[in-house]
Design a protein around this nucleic acid. Structure first.
Lengths: 205, 205
DNA sequence: TGTACATCAGTGAACGCGCGTTCACTGATGTAC
DNA sequence: TGTACATCAGTGAACGCGCGTTCACTGATGTAC
């Protein structure tokens, strides 16, 4: 949260920050809006206002709203990758422990960033500029692929393990975020991933 | 599609249709917009225009946009229930065959109604009037619960089978709808549910 | 060291858009007598 | 059978809202000479 170097110190004394940091501040403002107000409030004008600039200022840095959203998603995918990799690297060498670790990383990320996940996964494709986020999304999916590579396919398709794991984990996260049949579920406690872990019947290749 | 009684014949000759059918026509128009143009184009004004009335007319039948959306969702849940029940009843008596049948029903419904599913499951809760759809959602989830009741829990929680099945199927449908890591997946063919079926390792109770 | 100029990230006003909602109205339908 | 009235589902105009975008501008910064 806090460091010895305060974040609010302004530009570094000696360093002439040529380009300014408004793009980063706009992205940070967008992430804050997603966290505090939700996807429905994520507009160019509100992002600019939260960053403390006029609503015309972002046009000097982003081609339009879709490109800004794309950059926000890029940060989201990078954070998702980090959440998975951090846990995986702590999990030791056993393939199954590593697989469960990235699942938990994804679930933690979804739990902690519901608005951002909604933008990344549910927003209309035309509303988000895809090129900005593609590499970051590749890296995140790459973590899943690598971790699943130690297992043999559960079906005919080469990517069936990934598909199964991703389906299970995303669907579970989706339940945890309160979508779907929320009203109809008579849950006495939050669903627990341990309860559906037996579904991960993947075998080592 | 067509029947001997044409749909366009207007009110039945002898029957004084007291209440009129505009509410139903508005709901039908909303479903058409979802199917043809997507969730982003589902507005009160467009629904009214497609139904052939002024945009002030719906106010005589719906409290506001959220209530209309709630009624559209109710129809969606009813259709989802029908898709699952039809296949389940054709599947015979074996519990596992019945379970797979409702999964296939859900997947077919999601594939055929992507815009509607997005409204039902992904739209912001405050944008949809929940009371209108709750009973229909209860019925749909009830089908899942009944069908899972033949199996023993896969984890500690009593609802763990439902949670596992629903997570897997919804996550898989989500992939099929082209969300998530679509750009990063190097799929040579559409994902096939058969490939992840081995994950359904539920045992009879 | 000083001057003229170019660059560029901001401002603030204005634009048009589609949105949900409101409101006085109208004309058809049903009903009481 | 005829008349007066109430009901109600529509119309069309108007409202205010927030949105993304555009545009002339300004003031600071960097650079060439």
């Amino acid at each position: 949260m806090s460091s010895i170097q305060p974040d609010t110190a302004g530009p570094p004394p000696g360093g002439a920050r040529k380009t300014g940091d408004l793009p980063d501040r706009l992205i940070a403002s967008g992430l804050e809006i997603l966290a505090e107000e939700g996807l429905g409030k994520l507009t160019l004008r509100r992002v600019a206002a939260r960053a403390g600039v006029s609503h015309a200022a972002p046009a000097h840095h982003f081609k339009g709203l879709p490109q800004l959203l794309g950059c926000i998603c890029r940060v989201g995918y990078d954070n998702l990758t980090e959440a998975m990799v951090t846990r995986r690297d702590r999990a030791g060498l056993a393939p199954r422990a590593r697989l469960i670790a990235i699942c938990e990383g994804y679930l933690a990320f979804a739990r902690d960033n519901p608005g951002l996940v909604q933008l990344m996964f549910n927003a209309l494709p035309e509303a988000v500029s895809r090129p900005e986020m593609q590499e970051a999304a590749d890296r995140a999916y790459g973590v899943l692929q690598e971790t699943c590579a130690a297992f043999e396919p559960v079906g005919d398709a080469a990517d069936s393990t990934e598909t199964m794991v991703w389906s299970l984990v995303h669907g579970f996260a989706f339940l945890g975020l309160g979508y779907g049949f929320e009203q109809a579920r008579r849950v006495t406690r939050a669903p627990d991933f341990e309860d559906i872990l037996p579904a991960l019947t993947v075998r080592l290749a």
